[in-house]
Simulated assay, not measured.
Amino acid sequence: MVFPALIFRAIETIAVTVHFAFIGYVVLGGFLAWHWRRTIVLHLFAVAWGFGSVLVGYDCPLTDLENWARGMAGGPPLPSSGFIAYYITGVLYPVDAVNLVRLLVAALVLVSWAGFVLRRRAAVPVSHS
């Protein structure tokens, strides 16, 4: 039946889209917190989850959702290497640059956090009592 397969392909597409958005937020969300300060806590959790899934290797529920939808639509699951290896590594940067890209992402996150702290300190009035 074609109709159910279309629904599962739509779920797959939504999972992929949310996954890319999440990765974008992990990389750049600290800069959003410069303007929307309260989002820094959400960014801390997103970075902990994102870095943990890459470094520790625990399963991502978005990858699980995509694999489920792919299977229900009659397609193959993602390779065991996961979402980033399938959609990003070798597509947006060469495979042999993985460690450099990870280092650059970590540096970008740290720069965004340092900027957040500096901007926060600059915004807090100094008491002269």
Rank of each mutant, 00 (worst) to 15 (best):
I40G: 09
T13C: 04
T39G: 04
Y25A: 12
Y25E: 10
E12F: 09
L6H: 06
F45T: 10
E66A: 09
G74D: 08
G71W: 03
L78F: 02
G90W: 00
I7G: 10
H43N: 10
V124G: 08
V98K: 12
T63R: 03
I23L: 14
I23Q: 02
A73H: 05
V105K: 04
H35N: 11
L62R: 04
T13I: 03
A46G: 10
S81P: 01
L103F: 15
I7L: 13
A123Q: 11
I11M: 12
Y93L: 00
P125D: 01
F3P: 00
G115D: 12
A73V: 09
V98S: 12
H19Q: 03
V26F: 11
S53A: 15
L103D: 13
N99T: 15
H128T: 12
L65Q: 05
V91L: 02
G29P: 11
G50E: 05
S53C: 11
L110E: 07
G90N: 00
T63F: 04
Y58N: 02
L32E: 11
N67C: 04
V105Q: 08
S127W: 11
S80F: 05
A73I: 05
M72R: 13
V95I: 09
C60W: 00
L62P: 09
Y86V: 01
R119E: 07
G115A: 15
D64S: 10
D64F: 01
V109A: 15
W49Y: 14
A123T: 05
R119H: 04
L62I: 05
R120S: 11
T17C: 07
V2I: 08
I23D: 06
R102E: 07
F45V: 14
W113K: 15
H19F: 06
P125V: 12
Y86E: 06
A10N: 05
V41Y: 13
A73L: 04
S129E: 07
M1I: 09
F20P: 06
N99P: 08
V16Q: 07
P77E: 00
W36V: 14
I40C: 10
G24Q: 07
A106T: 13
S129H: 06
L44R: 07
I84S: 03
Y25N: 09
I88R: 00
A107R: 13
S112I: 15
R70P: 01
G90K: 03
S81E: 04
R120F: 01
I14T: 10
N99Q: 14
F20Y: 08
A85L: 02
Y93D: 05
G52N: 07
A97E: 08
L78C: 00
A33P: 08
T13S: 13
A97N: 08
V27T: 13
D96Q: 04
F116Q: 08
Y87D: 03
I11Y: 02
R119Y: 00
Y58P: 03
N99R: 11
F83E: 00
M72G: 01
A48P: 10
F116S: 11
P79M: 02
F83I: 00
A97R: 12
N99S: 13
C60A: 08
F116H: 12
V101R: 11
L32G: 10
A15W: 02
A15C: 09
R70G: 06
V95Q: 07
V126T: 14
W34S: 04
R70W: 02
A122V: 01
I40V: 14
L55Y: 15
T13K: 06
L65C: 07
R120Q: 02
L104P: 07
V2G: 05
T63A: 11
L100C: 05
V26A: 15
P77Q: 02
G24Y: 06
A5S: 04
R38G: 15
